[in-house]
Design a protein around this nucleic acid. Structure first.
Lengths: 224, 224
DNA sequence: CAGGTTCCTATACGCGTGTGTAGAGGGCAG
DNA sequence: CTGCCCTCTACACACGCGTATAGGAACCTG
């Protein structure tokens, strides 16, 4: 019954403009940007199609507004969770919240659809991860940049393919319960190395050989 | 009737039908299904738009044909690599081949665009991974299904977001050299656990608490 | 009350889309 | 040669899209 734990939406969020933005966020997240029409958004928001243009100018500008809003809201929630510092593991706790789930889903979709804001977010996450890796785990990889990029991309995988993952698991990953189940599996994955040092070294050697003398088993014909 | 003049699958990929399929594969992989038009495909294949319809009936059927072809070709290459058994690490070696890169890129894109064949492939990979985990690493997770699903989704992450990853790394991941660089980082990632057993156990406890008494910091209202 | 600005709807235009149809060219039995 | 099937092109149709414009309704600001 608490009024202000996470949902600190502002008072003007009942305006048609906010309704349009929220509807667009939902539909963009679910059907992608190309798969969502302005008329769908206007219908979901309960307004006319012309009003969407009046408030946002164009579909692209609406997408930008959604990007900015999602980013802003997510950052706000994250930093608030950090300040609250409610013990345990804030990342997973905030991650289980429905609003955060929706926002991350939108961002994941936006990442695939190629939004500039999502690209910037990806780059920023890679930068942060690279700094974190070089600082705390410098021994892990000789190529921290690639390591960080791979880490970010892999972390986003389950979110981007949440529908496939949900189907394979028989539970909605973007529900609180399903997200928790997935998070546990992620922790299991992070806690146990999949490759032994010997196998890893062997793989590195094989790839080094491949790098010097490319494609020994490959056919000579080109791809196209 | 005695002789099939142009029904043999492999010998002549120079037919217009094959050219259309290959062009569609390229364009679908790059721009997605919704972002690719039949006219683009026909132009890339050097034929008229009507011929696309004549050979494949509809855009959806063409997509299905691309799915089937990509799957078939990828399986064929994989099993060939297995039979060749060229020592070292076959997975990374075949993964570095341009044709395989293209096919995997197409399937990754197809996965995001929601093709039935890609969904089936995802499920199949999860099944295989689950069987492999329960057989060789039963101690890793109490939920092998979720673990397998997460593993598959994470493995696909770099492929699905190859453009972002390539931008962040300053090198094309889908080139042979870039793929090799990424593969090394992946091996590094697989070889070192990111979470210590203590932290992992702590996270599990926190999530268990969250599961019993959902969202202590969150309000009960729904996402929309 | 008058005037202007903002919010909102209704309707239409231009365009690109997937799809349908008519028909031309060209090997190949009969 | 005649007829036929297959390949392939050119053209048109209907539809949904983002966008644009005109005008009504409500709400401040004098």
């Amino acid at each position: 019954m608490a009024a202000h734990p996470i949902d600190d939406r502002e008072s003007e969020d009942l305006t048609a403009r906010a309704r349009i933005r929220d509807a667009a966020l939902h539909l963009f997240a679910e059907h992608g940007i190309g798969g969502t029409t302005i008329r769908h958004i206007s219908a979901a928001a309960g307004v006319s199609a012309g009003l969407v243009r009046h408030h946002f100018g164009s579909k692209e500008a609406l997408r930008d507004a959604c990007d900015a809003h999602a980013l802003d809201r997510l950052m706000r929630i994250k930093e608030k969770a950090v300040f609250d510092g409610s013990g345990g593991n804030p990342a997973f706790m905030t991650g289980a919240h429905p609003t955060v789930l929706l926002l991350m889903r939108y961002l994941a979709r936006s990442m695939v659809d190629g939004s500039p804001a999502a690209a910037a977010l990806f780059d920023q996450m890679v930068d942060l991860t690279e700094a974190w890796v070089t600082r705390h785990h410098p021994e892990v990889s000789a190529d921290p940049r690639a390591y960080a990029g791979v880490l970010v991309a892999m972390q986003m995988g389950p979110l981007v393919m949440h529908d496939h993952l949900s189907r394979a698991l028989g539970a909605d990953i973007l529900s609180t319960a399903g997200h928790l189940r997935m998070s546990k599996a992620v922790v299991d994955f992070y806690a146990h190395p999949l490759l032994s040092p010997e196998v890893a070294a062997q793989a590195h050697e094989a790839m080094d050989r491949l790098q010097e003398r490319p494609s020994p088993t490959a056919e000579p014909r080109s791809a196209d």
